[in-house]
């Protein structure tokens, strides 16, 4: 059922008092669970749960000709699919604009942070390079698929290994993974999305909160040496944002990122 006027108003009342529907503080995340290696046929894979929200992500690799404008680099192709299995609101068919936008935000965070060392994906300049296919699927939508997707993407990439590649036959031997990991850097992007509900901003909304939100700002950040850098941003939705509001959110995001990053890194690496 879609959200009612009554519940929407109540959510506003709560937020004015600094409370959430499920008792959390405005910027508290639900519990995050990360499981890696969930699909044996993927070169890397992960399941991320944030509360009742669940997504899975998988990495597949392929060899192809590099793009002419970057002949010594590999490529990344990211996709997000909102499976109709995961919510009564999702329909079968080609990806919705929401899924496409989500994939674009995930993709930009990874690309702009330099998390993947694309040069090391080159096999022979101008002729052969690895392409990283990153696919993310929703399993249960209980709000905040955006941040969950970005997190699952990073976790899947971090556990990815190259399959064997027969240079002479120019064939990837799928199913036999090597010890060689995907070339990643220390700059792991994590995306935090702030949702504006009435006059308040919150993190990690449940479905009801997400449905009563008119605008959101996604911010992907990563560590570059000693600094934390903002790599990708997107304001989505029809409502505008004031300048000082935006700046305050960016500042909050920076602080939150610094808290959350070591935790996430630990969750991914624990296996």
């Amino acid at each position: 059922m879609e959200i009612s006027n009554l519940t929407k108003e109540r959510i506003h009342d709560y937020l004015r008092a600094g409370k959430r529907f499920d008792g959390r503080g405005l910027f508290d995340y639900r519990d995050i669970v990360i499981e890696t290696g969930i699909s044996k046929n993927a070169e890397g894979s992960a399941r991320v749960k944030i509360g009742d929200t669940e997504v899975v992500a998988g990495v597949k690799l392929g060899v192809s000709e590099p793009y002419p404008d970057s002949p010594d680099e590999g490529a990344l192709i990211s996709g997000v699919e909102h499976l109709p299995l995961s919510s009564p609101h999702f329909e079968s068919g080609p990806p919705s604009i929401h899924a496409i936008e989500m994939a674009r935000i995930v993709d930009r965070g990874i690309r702009e942070s330099g998390f993947i060392d694309f040069k090391k994906l080159c096999i022979k300049e101008g002729e052969k390079a690895w392409t990283v296919f990153l696919d993310i699927y929703s399993i249960n939508d209980a709000g905040n698929l955006m941040d969950a997707s970005a997190l699952a993407a990073v976790a899947a990439l971090k556990t990815a290994h190259f399959p064997e590649y027969d240079k002479d036959a120019d064939k990837v031997i799928f199913g036999s993974l090597t010890d060689k990991k995907l070339p990643l850097t220390e700059s792991m992007p994590i995306t935090l999305t702030y949702y504006k509900v009435n006059n308040a901003f919150i993190l990690d909304p449940i479905s009801l909160e997400e449905e009563s939100s008119d605008m959101r700002i996604s911010i992907a950040m990563s560590r570059q040496g000693k600094k934390v850098i903002i790599n990708a941003c997107q304001k989505s939705g029809e409502v505008t944002v004031a300048k000082d509001e935006l700046i305050s959110i960016l500042e909050k995001a920076m602080d939150k990122w610094k808290q959350i990053e070591p935790k996430v890194a630990k969750l991914i690496d624990k296996k």
């Binding site: 059922m1 009612s4 009554l6 519940t7 108003e9 109540r10 529907f21």
Partner: peptide
């Protein structure tokens, strides 16, 4: 009609 309050499922 229900006024104020909240709905849970």
């Amino acid at each position: 009609k229900l006024e104020k309050g909240m709905i849970i499922a």
